[in-house]
């Protein structure tokens, strides 16, 4: 019988991270679009700001990858 626990756990780890990132980025993105519309010179800041929440999904990915690979 296949042990579904690990893949499901990995999925949750990754999925929640992605949802979190998406949520954060949607807000930052819309605000960033507004800011850039008014002050194009802040483009650099905005790119960085939008990229910041990516940490969440990346950490989620790392955790899930580690679960799958290490808990085999």
């Amino acid at each position: 019988m296949v042990d579904w626990g690990i893949p499901i756990g990995a999925g949750i780890a990754f999925g929640l991270g992605a949802v979190g990132t998406g949520f954060a980025q949607s807000k930052i993105g819309s605000a960033g679009a507004g800011t850039i519309a008014e002050r194009p010179e802040t483009f650099g800041y905005m790119v960085v700001l939008v990229a910041i929440p990516e940490t969440l999904v990346i950490l989620g990915f790392v955790v899930s990858a580690m679960m799958i690979i290490m808990l085999k």
Partner: peptide, 15 residues
Amino acid sequence: LSYARIMAIGMASVV
């Protein structure tokens, strides 16, 4: 810890 992304993004690309 945030530098873990170096490995993570690489992993994503590999996968």
